[in-house]
Design a protein around this nucleic acid. Structure first.
Lengths: 105, 105
DNA sequence: AATTTGCGCAACTCAAAAGTTGCATATATA
DNA sequence: TATATATGCAACTTTTGAGTTGCGCAAATT
């Protein structure tokens, strides 16, 4: 079952995992040590993140280092782009308002 | 109960609502007509979006027009910023690799 | 070879969230 | 004033997801 990237990021623990491995690739055990929950719980989060390709595994003996996949994270950025114009417009309108107020002085 | 913006955006219906009203403010009934679900179901999504301030109500008689709150959406952008450097680095490294390959010709 | 360690998978429990139906309230319209 | 319409709230059912426990497998260690 393919996971949805928005769904993957909705969970705070998964966001924390992403923040961690964006700095340095980690094994499931190493991640679990950072959180107050069982290794298996973390492992399930890893599965979700892996299924939507936000992280990539790198096998090293019996250890698996999970890397952050920045490219996938950009999908978010692309979705957000449809609103970016919207908020820039809003600020431009604010600028205009402030300018108008200043001119009235 | 305050809602989490990440949780709010995780739902596909809520994302569709946001996309709709980013273009034009709509009433709950108008939104419900766009989706194949009851008005009350849409209304619950509106409640979630409203609680995390992604949308703003504007009363007009007995109708309520919900507007998109671009400013709140920027919180996403700020969260994403921590990874932006990450993927730019990745592309810079790719650039460097390509440059190196070209120099070897 | 036996044991330990790192990991994933499956079954289970429990809590939260999505959707439905029914009802109350306020504003329009006849 | 009586009726229709727009909306929100509460109770309920069903689905989904987070977390735990138990197990099996493969690689490292002794």
């Amino acid at each position: 079952m393919k996971q949805d990237i928005f769904q993957a990021i909705a969970d705070p623990t998964r966001r924390a995992i992403l923040t961690l491995i964006a700095i340095q690739a980690l094994t499931p055990n190493a991640m679990a040590e950072k959180f107050d929950m069982s290794r298996q719980a973390v492992s399930k989060h890893i599965k979700v993140l892996h299924e939507c390709e936000l992280i990539k595994p790198e096998q090293s003996g019996r250890e698996i280092y999970y890397h952050f996949n920045a490219k996938k994270m950009q999908e978010f950025d692309h979705w957000l782009a449809q609103f970016r114009q919207n908020w820039e417009t809003q600020f431009n309108q604010l600028d205009h308002l402030l300018t108008t107020i200043n001119e009235q002085k």
